[in-house]
Design a protein around this nucleic acid. Sequence first.
DNA 1: AATAAAACAAACTGGTCTGTATGGTGTCAA
DNA 2: TTGACACCATACAGACCAGTTTGTTTTATT
Lengths: 195, 195
Amino acid sequence: MTEPAGNNDQAGGMRQRILETASSLFYEHGVRAIGVDLVVERAGIAKTSLYRHFRTKDELVAAFLEREDAAFWQAWDDVAARHRDDPEAELLAHMGWIAERVARPGYRGCPQINVAAEFPESGHPARQVEYEHKREMRRRIQALGERMQMADPAGFSASLSVFINGAFVSSRVLDPGEAKPVLADTAAALLSAYR
Amino acid sequence: MTEPAGNNDQAGGMRQRILETASSLFYEHGVRAIGVDLVVERAGIAKTSLYRHFRTKDELVAAFLEREDAAFWQAWDDVAARHRDDPEAELLAHMGWIAERVARPGYRGCPQINVAAEFPESGHPARQVEYEHKREMRRRIQALGERMQMADPAGFSASLSVFINGAFVSSRVLDPGEAKPVLADTAAALLSAYR
DNA sequence: AATAAAACAAACTGGTCTGTATGGTGTCAA
DNA sequence: TTGACACCATACAGACCAGTTTGTTTTATT
């Protein structure tokens, strides 16, 4: 089986290097604040190389969100794997690592929400990624509610996923040690209300 | 008493006209997407006039958030005035108008949160406005919790204001009729949990 | 060794951005 | 009437933007 492109190993590494550099710059400073020239310089590559792997900057932004999406669900799955048989414990564990994450020093909010704020046009390629990411959150929490045999798992999921989105954007107004108890207490309150 | 500036009446109207035009453009398309030239054109004024009333674009952005802040608390106070003697009814009424607002067709999220996403540098003049706005939300909800003689009004306020911020950024992932029951039910759940 | 893909550097296109400078017009007050 | 000031229109400075073009060098496969 001959490879379609000349050098797959290096080519994949190149794409990933560009994406990693762009991702950290985009996340830290915002997408519109970072020009492709800076990405090129910081990645130590030629501009032509960037545009071979990504048709436009908008596609690079969408790839950034896809990367963040994958990393987020990876973290989620890692925690879920430690609570295979107890959906309530799993849910509380999720609140724990999310609280820990939003309280971290360099935390700058949810990349999906930030990009959505920067690009109001719903036709932007990154907006589709953001939409699916948020939908997936609702689906996963609803599945947990179903496994807990709640009467209204959809309502529970809507409420809790809205709250989690709130945690992502409220980190600056929450005092450092506050995130953890607030997330835990609210989850407990919603659990008992929707039980 | 001589007026410090030549023509106060017109000058105030001019500033407000610029600010109104800029506000709707900023809110609809994002701040970084709107150049001062476009604001000038749409306001039907000269660029020199804009820069006489606002030192820089950043100050115009801060004024935009101050305007939105004032309008938001005006709406809040209007509702509060109709429930002077019943803090629980007032709180549920707030959930009502907020739900109605985020479900409106042209709703693009909370301007404070959107600007915060566009300008990560915490030194930006608009970020101070955003910070105070979010703090004020916590203060007001805590005051309601205190009037309800809750044991932990600060915890209640933290939880509910995080949730409200979540509602602001989740409007796109909520189905049209969903916002109202989700906000009402969650508020009820938190009320009974923190009672 | 030959071929092809992919990387490099650097200039360039055509446009946008914030902010300033210039000069002219209308209005109000001393 | 004279001066101060707000306003207008236009042009400009200097930087940055996304994306293309050109031509050379590296790298990998055949």
